[in-house]
């Protein structure tokens, strides 16, 4: 947090000087406009979150009868208790599943992307650019478009409705390979790799002990992107999974939401469940943004 304020002060100081020569008035106007746009955007993004937070604290009857953007009787903990006990706590199972799919998936995807990106950046071999371009092409194919073909493939293998049906497709990140390549090329000097080789380190050891450290900020970025992508991935689990105990939290909440006409009371659980399901994302982001930001700043300096 402090770092981000620091950068901001630096930047404003930086822009102030030329502004003095050019004309303060324009700069003030444009800054006000920019500020206004940002405030509107912030409200636009935060209002639904605020609504979610407020709605989660309400009792079922207050939910429809009171102002949707302000608190009524505080029942957050009752709601949480109702949520985690409903159907023997299946919601907690869903959270654990999401953590498994997103955590393990993002970790392995980051590893594979780093290895591939590093290899493409640092080794010369035939077909290197073709390989890279094909991978880059993968960025353009939306995951949703691949879900149905994947389902048919997994059906052939008899692996639908298993953990693997969601985990395996999550292990590839073409964007991650792209970022790793760019970052490895810029931040891992050939001299260091040479030095490591002269010191007797093998290629794998060089990669894990030297390259990954230098690439760390990029790896954190890839991990974050992939974590969020898997956590929010809804379509693939929808198509692959039938067993309630394998659902990730997104699919579980969606299923509940479609049952509202049968069991209207379930709506309150969907609301409180949605709130709880975004907390891990926020925590992950806050915990990792320090590495991420310093990485971006370093990258910029180079």
């Amino acid at each position: 947090m402090t770092e981000s304020t620091d950068t901001r002060t630096l930047r404003t100081q930086g822009t102030k000087k030329p502004a003095r020569d050019g004309g303060i008035r324009e700069s003030a106007v444009s800054r006000t406009v920019a500020m206004a746009v940002m405030i509107v955007a912030t409200l636009y993004f935060l209002t639904p979150l605020w609504w979610l937070l407020v709605a989660s604290t309400k009792t079922r009857s207050d939910f429809t009868t009171t102002n949707p953007l302000w608190f009524a009787d505080f029942a957050l903990f009752d709601n949480v208790a109702a949520l985690v006990t409903y159907r023997d706590g299946v919601f907690l199972q869903w959270l654990a599943n999401s953590a498994l799919y997103a955590g393990v998936g993002a970790l392995l995807a980051t590893l594979f992307a780093a290895m591939a990106g590093y290899a493409i950046a640092k080794y010369t071999f035939r077909g290197r650019e073709t390989l890279f371009n094909v991978i880059l092409g993968g960025v353009l194919v939306p995951a949703t478009a691949l879900a149905l073909p994947l389902f048919l493939l997994f059906s052939q293998a008899g692996a639908t409705n298993t953990i693997w049906a969601v985990l395996l497709p999550s292990l590839v990140s073409p964007f991650g390979v792209y970022l790793s390549r760019i970052y490895a090329a810029a931040s891992v000097p050939d001299e260091i790799i040479e030095a490591a080789r002269i010191d007797g380190a093998g290629e794998v050891r060089t990669f894990f002990t030297v390259a990954t450290r230098l690439m760390a900020p990029a790896l954190v970025t890839i991990f974050l992107f992939q974590f969020v992508a898997i956590w929010n991935n809804f379509f693939l689990p929808l198509i692959m999974l039938r067993d309630e105990s394998l659902f990730p939290v997104t699919l579980g909440l969606y299923v509940w939401n479609t049952q509202v006409s049968q069991i209207p009371d379930i709506r309150a659980l969907v609301v409180i469940g949605s709130l709880l399901s975004i907390i891990p994302l926020i925590v992950t982001f806050l915990a990792l943004q320090r590495f991420w930001q310093s990485g971006l700043a370093n990258g910029g300096l180079k």
Binding site: L148, S155, T160, N161, I239, R242, D243, E244, Y254
Partner: peptide
């Protein structure tokens, strides 16, 4: 028992996918 969203919410499409895949 297997479950999913209501019919139009995705389960019908899943049935058709599964019928095509033979499972």
């Amino acid at each position: 028992v297997q479950t999913g969203p209501n019919g139009n919410g995705g389960t019908y499409q899943n049935f058709f996918n599964q019928l095509a895949a033979g499972n």
